[in-house]
Simulated scan of single mutants.
Amino acid sequence: MVRLQVTGMSCSGCEQRIARVLHRVDGVREVTADHSTGHVEVSIGPGLADRAVLAERIEAAGFEVIDGASR
């Protein structure tokens, strides 16, 4: 499980956008995004996507990932 702190989410549409983007990454099993807390949790298969790839995709979608969120 990878947990990321994300800024820029303001509604359920933002949550859905992040989920759609991350579900396109190989190995992503489940995505839970919560705009009220700014947390995105991603369940991935072993040896597949990593935090850097997930953060890159989220940022490409127009959001900002804050360093310091733990794996």
Results as ranks from 00 to 15, higher is better:
residue 15 E to F: 01
residue 1 M to V: 09
residue 51 R to K: 08
residue 37 T to C: 01
residue 36 S to W: 03
residue 46 P to Q: 11
residue 56 E to Y: 13
residue 6 V to I: 04
residue 5 Q to E: 12
residue 44 I to D: 07
residue 7 T to Y: 10
residue 43 S to Q: 12
residue 60 A to Y: 12
residue 65 V to W: 02
residue 54 L to N: 02
residue 40 V to F: 01
residue 1 M to N: 06
residue 9 M to C: 03
residue 25 V to T: 07
residue 19 A to M: 10
residue 61 A to K: 10
residue 17 R to Q: 10
residue 62 G to N: 09
residue 46 P to N: 13
residue 53 V to R: 13
residue 57 R to D: 10
residue 38 G to P: 00
residue 26 D to M: 13
residue 64 E to M: 12
residue 12 S to I: 04
residue 29 R to V: 14
residue 63 F to L: 03
residue 20 R to K: 15
residue 9 M to P: 05
residue 64 E to Y: 09
residue 2 V to R: 07
residue 66 I to Q: 10
residue 64 E to Q: 12
residue 52 A to M: 13
residue 33 A to C: 05
residue 13 G to E: 04
residue 17 R to E: 09
residue 2 V to Y: 04
residue 18 I to Y: 02
residue 58 I to G: 02
residue 3 R to K: 08
residue 66 I to G: 12
residue 16 Q to V: 15
residue 33 A to Q: 01
residue 40 V to G: 00
residue 23 H to G: 11
residue 33 A to K: 02
residue 41 E to F: 01
residue 62 G to W: 08
residue 35 H to A: 01
residue 41 E to M: 02
residue 19 A to G: 14
residue 18 I to N: 04
residue 37 T to F: 00
residue 5 Q to Y: 06
residue 21 V to M: 11
residue 65 V to C: 05
residue 33 A to F: 02
residue 28 V to Y: 05
residue 47 G to F: 06
residue 8 G to M: 07
residue 42 V to M: 03
residue 14 C to H: 03
residue 38 G to F: 00
residue 69 A to K: 03
residue 19 A to L: 05
residue 6 V to L: 04
residue 8 G to V: 03
residue 43 S to M: 10
residue 58 I to Y: 03
